[in-house]
Lab assay of single mutants.
Amino acid sequence: QRITLKDYAMRFGQTKTAKDLGVYQSAINKAIHAGRKIFLTINADGSVYAEEVKDGEVKPFPS
């Protein structure tokens, strides 16, 4: 399943989102408010992988 960072954070909370991605909650808040195009893939085992689309390139998040 693929979902935006904002939607994932709204569904699970910023604290869990940060923990799942290995970053601080403040980084999640800042990324959402900056309007960054970050998409999360939720794997069947429950693990989460995030990618950011920037300038036409897709890069892992966090980099």
Rank of each mutant, 00 (worst) to 15 (best):
Q1D: 13
Q1I: 14
R2H: 11
I3T: 08
T4S: 14
L5K: 00
L5W: 00
K6V: 13
D7M: 06
Y8F: 05
Y8H: 03
M10D: 15
M10K: 14
M10T: 13
M10C: 13
R11N: 10
F12C: 05
G13A: 01
G13H: 01
G13M: 01
G13Q: 01
Q14H: 13
T15M: 14
T15E: 15
K16N: 05
K16Q: 10
K16A: 08
T17F: 02
T17H: 01
T17P: 02
A18P: 01
A18M: 04
K19D: 08
K19Y: 10
D20A: 09
D20Q: 09
L21V: 06
L21T: 03
L21G: 01
L21D: 00
G22D: 07
V23W: 07
Y24Q: 15
Y24T: 15
Y24G: 15
Q25P: 15
Q25F: 08
I28T: 01
I28M: 05
I28W: 01
I28D: 02
N29H: 14
N29Q: 14
N29I: 14
K30G: 11
A31G: 03
A31K: 01
A31H: 03
I32F: 03
H33L: 14
H33D: 13
H33M: 14
A34T: 12
A34I: 09
A34C: 11
G35Y: 05
G35H: 10
R36M: 08
R36K: 08
R36P: 02
K37F: 09
F39E: 05
F39G: 01
F39C: 08
L40D: 00
L40F: 03
T41G: 05
T41M: 10
T41P: 00
I42F: 08
I42S: 04
I42N: 03
I42H: 04
N43L: 12
N43P: 04
A44Y: 09
D45H: 05
D45P: 03
D45G: 05
G46T: 04
S47M: 07
S47L: 07
S47C: 08
S47G: 08
S47W: 06
S47T: 13
V48D: 00
V48N: 01
V48G: 01
Y49H: 11
Y49I: 12
Y49E: 09
A50F: 03
E51M: 07
E51T: 08
E51F: 09
E52K: 01
E52L: 03
V53A: 07
V53K: 06
K54T: 13
K54D: 12
K54M: 12
K54A: 13
K54Q: 10
D55I: 06
G56E: 07
E57T: 12
V58P: 07
V58R: 08
K59R: 13
K59E: 09
K59M: 14
P60Y: 05
F61M: 03
F61I: 03
F61S: 02
F61G: 02
P62M: 04
P62S: 04
P62E: 05
S63M: 10
S63Y: 10
